[in-house]
Design a protein around this nucleic acid. Structure first.
Lengths: 107, 107
DNA sequence: TTTATATATCGCAATATTACGATAATAAAT
DNA sequence: ATTTATTATCGTAATATTGCGATATATAAA
């Protein structure tokens, strides 16, 4: 098999897992930290800062965009990426809800 | 290549990614939610509740144990799993730190 | 219009993950 | 001691992920 059986889980569980999956890579963590620390967040700067090949970074940025964690704005021939703050906060709350609701009984 | 280049990232980034990786699966989310909702958390109950094969559940439990999110206690021939509350809280704080520290400037 | 620069996409190789059947290991019950 | 019940491990097939070279695309500069 090898494929996650997402049909047997509910939307909230699948969405949580999807968010965690995007965050489950040190390059993407590093990219988010770098974007968060910069005023300007030019794609090429990210490539140089992280130390992975440009296509690799581009792919990671695409994954981060897929859950709206970051947004890209065209600036001439450059691309300015930034964190989507409202989505950032929304995801943080969503994760905290999961941690808070699950922290209960047992043993 | 296909392997994550963890050498080029720092410990905090790698640890964050490792935690997110364990959480990045709806079956493991469902297992955690189920364990959190029960007083007793017998392995076999988890198997029946989730609806995946017993070896699959056992493997997921192993992953959750690998980051100390849950603990298993032998009770006769049964196994009682429970959430490790101090680790649970520690991880929640660690993730919040990441979200809080990264939520900055840009655009 | 040609050239240079910046980013995205394609295709592939190397690994990692998910799921499960078969089976081993363990402990209670008979 | 044998059987039964519960959980773990092994091996494997199907897929997913990571990373990069080659290349396409797009815009600015010359």
């Amino acid at each position: 098999m090898g494929i996650t059986k997402s049909q047997i889980f509910n939307d909230q569980q699948n969405e949580l897992a999807a968010i965690f999956r995007v965050l489950a890579n040190p390059a993407r963590i590093a990219i988010l930290e770098y974007i968060g620390s910069q005023q300007a967040c030019i794609c090429n700067d990210i490539v140089e800062h992280i130390g992975l090949a440009q296509p690799t970074i581009s792919q990671h940025l695409k994954e981060l965009k897929s859950i709206q964690l970051i947004e890209g704005e065209i600036e001439g021939k450059k691309m300015c990426y930034c964190i989507n703050l409202s989505r950032w906060n929304e995801i943080q709350s969503f994760l905290n809800e999961f941690f808070d609701n699950t922290r209960i009984n047992c043993c």
